[in-house]
Simulated scan of single mutants.
Amino acid sequence: MENCIGNALLTSVTSVNITTGTLVPGAQAQYRPTTNTIIFRPDGIGNSLGEELFHAYQQQLYGTLIGIGNPNTGHLGGSNIEFEEKAYTQLSIWVENFRKMDNHDDSASGGLFVADAAPIFEELTLLNDWIVDFILNNPSGNISLTQNELSSWFTALEAFRAHHFAVNGCGITDVYGCPIDPTFKPDALINLYEKSIENCN
């Protein structure tokens, strides 16, 4: 609730049931669009709550997540959904640190590198670059991405998809490497960012 975008997300997700249960090994949590439920491992949730709530928000906004699991479409758009969720996590870190710096909050000193230290793979480096440019270029609401911003977004998304396809391929249990839907823009991310501008500045 103390994080501007996290607060916007929490107040926007209206009908999510949170349950615990057994997941496949290695998974921390999972959003199930067919039942609008988040399920956690019984041994702890890690940092997964915000990520899975973001998937619930995508479902609310797009109404298409159930179709992502369709093998007949090759899970088209699966990588879009997962990449936007990763972007949500990074954007929330960057926005909070920029806000703290604007308010001369000492807890922001060095904190900006929390997001910057995360890149291990090319797609996260590209994503962080995109987020910083996005924040600096869009200080107010009613955002419409420029062609350059869209192009940079899809370049980072393709690096994300290619990396995950090389590691795990594409399938119902891992849609990270599945085909990109070029019409699927990061509207949920932008929507929450606009709400955070309204509520936190």
Rank of each mutant, 00 (worst) to 15 (best):
G77H: 03
G77A: 02
G78R: 12
G78K: 06
G78C: 11
G78N: 05
S79G: 03
N80H: 08
N80M: 08
I81W: 02
I81R: 07
E82F: 07
E82D: 14
E82Q: 12
F83I: 02
F83R: 00
F83D: 00
F83Q: 01
E84K: 02
E84R: 03
E84G: 02
E84H: 02
E84M: 05
E85V: 14
E85H: 01
K86M: 13
K86Q: 15
K86V: 15
K86W: 07
K86G: 06
K86F: 04
K86L: 10
A87H: 00
A87G: 14
A87V: 13
A87N: 07
A87Q: 13
Y88F: 15
Y88P: 02
Y88H: 10
Y88V: 00
T89E: 12
T89R: 08
T89W: 08
T89C: 01
T89P: 00
T89K: 09
Q90D: 09
Q90Y: 12
Q90F: 11
Q90W: 02
Q90C: 02
Q90P: 00
L91E: 00
L91V: 04
L91I: 02
L91S: 00
L91F: 01
L91W: 03
S92P: 01
S92L: 02
S92Y: 00
S92V: 00
I93S: 08
I93V: 10
I93P: 00
I93M: 08
I93F: 07
I93L: 14
W94G: 00
W94S: 05
W94H: 09
V95L: 13
V95I: 10
V95K: 00
V95W: 01
V95M: 05
V95T: 07
E96K: 11
E96H: 07
E96R: 09
E96F: 00
N97R: 10
N97Q: 13
N97L: 12
N97D: 10
N97V: 07
F98M: 08
F98Q: 13
F98S: 06
F98Y: 15
F98W: 11
F98I: 14
F98C: 06
F98R: 14
R99Y: 10
R99F: 09
R99M: 10
K100H: 09
K100N: 14
K100M: 12
K100E: 11
K100Q: 14
M101N: 08
M101L: 13
M101W: 06
D102I: 04
D102K: 10
D102A: 15
D102T: 08
D102Q: 09
N103G: 03
N103R: 13
H104W: 14
H104P: 00
H104L: 15
H104V: 14
H104C: 04
D105N: 15
D105E: 14
D106N: 05
D106A: 12
D106T: 11
D106S: 07
D106H: 02
D106R: 05
S107Q: 14
S107F: 06
S107K: 06
S107W: 12
S107D: 13
A108C: 06
A108Q: 08
S109E: 09
S109K: 12
G110T: 07
G110A: 03
G110I: 08
G110H: 08
G110Y: 11
G111V: 07
G111R: 05
G111T: 09
G111A: 10
G111K: 05
